[in-house]
């Protein structure tokens, strides 16, 4: 910029020039390094970003939010879906029981969960994990989730494990932002639009029930289940926690959960714990049921039993 023979004018030294050059290069490097952030689209709109906590949304707010999610799903995934926000029913508290004598370990429940709940396809995500256990031991240490032989194998039994919908859920206690809570009908839910993704709940859960969206879920439009719930099976955003909700978009409308319908043997019993005539109550009263890791005091509402 200045002739080499003339001394630098206005006190601009060579050192200053180097500094200027360094600063320019530095800024350019910063811009380049952070460039991927410009391709980051964590939310579709300002309303999305500023959305309030689920419990603070008015009925009108909620309606707007549901419509917006439907629109965003169409835009991002090309699917027409209906997102509802079913409320807990009075006088209903859900319970689930599983007959370990009948379960054959076919994992059809895990597959049904995957499809019903619009899980990420490549990662085979599912809220249910089935352990193959050895007769004579309830020690999970001896379990194996990766069995691949005809089932039921000799001297084995099968233990599907999913969210136990604890009455004292440690995952809810640890959440720093109240993004997860227990609903009056017993379901522990996550507000996917409020979760910050710290994964403390995943560390706190003793049942491996929580899942994280390590990347944006990928599902072909044709495979998307269009019947969706805000707190349950709508397609989750990247970077938030999710978990089994006993298919509340189904069960709050009186339907059986998807994993139960998929069970070929009827090992699964679902119903209203507050209804003395319900199937689940009959099981609790007439079978010798147990819960997983009872000593932790989590008070699971998911029960296991063997036939006598």
């Amino acid at each position: 910029m200045s002739q080499p023979t003339t001394p630098p004018a206005e006190g601009i030294t060579r050192r200053d020039m180097f500094k200027g050059l360094g600063a320019t290069l530095g800024l350019a490097a910063y811009a380049k390094a952070l460039a991927p952030l410009t391709e980051w689209k964590p939310f579709e709109s300002v309303e999305d970003f500023l959305q309030k906590h689920y419990s603070e949304l008015s009925a009108v707010d909620l309606e707007v939010v549901l419509k917006r999610i439907e629109k965003d799903t169409k835009k991002q995934y090309g699917a027409d879906v209906q997102v509802s926000a079913d409320r807990p029913q009075p006088g209903v508290k859900f319970g689930y029981a599983l007959n370990l004598s009948i379960c054959i370990g076919c994992r059809k429940c895990a597959e049904a969960c995957h499809k019903e709940n619009n899980h990420d396809r490549p990662s085979h995500q599912s809220y249910i994990r089935v352990l193959e256990m050895s007769n004579g031991s309830l020690d999970l240490e001896k379990g194996n989730a990766h069995y691949d032989h005809p089932v039921p194998a000799k001297d084995k039994f099968y233990m599907p494990i999913q969210c136990q919908q604890c009455d004292h859920p440690p995952c809810v206690d640890v959440c720093p932002v109240e993004a997860t809570w227990k609903e009056p009908d017993g379901i522990v839910v996550v507000d996917y639009n409020w979760c910050i993704g710290c994964r403390y709940c995943e560390a706190a859960c003793p049942y491996h029930a929580r899942r994280f969206n390590w990347s944006k879920p990928q599902i072909p439009a044709a495979e998307i289940n269009p019947v969706q719930g805000y707190l349950s099976n709508r397609i989750r955003p990247q970077g938030v926690m999710e978990k089994c909700t006993f298919c509340l978009h189904r069960t709050r409308n009186g339907k059986l959960p998807a994993c139960l319908e998929a069970c070929p043997t009827g090992a699964r019993v679902f119903g209203n714990l507050l209804d003395p005539d319900s199937e689940i109550r009959w099981v609790l009263q007439n079978k010798r049921v147990f819960v997983l890791k009872e000593e932790l005091g989590t008070k699971p509402q998911f029960f296991y039993f063997f036939d006598a």
Binding site: A179, C195, I196, R199, G239
Partner: peptide, 9 residues
């Protein structure tokens, strides 16, 4: 954090 944009929560 999975969602640093929600830090304000």
């Amino acid at each position: 954090l999975g969602r640093p944009d929600r830090f304000w929560h």
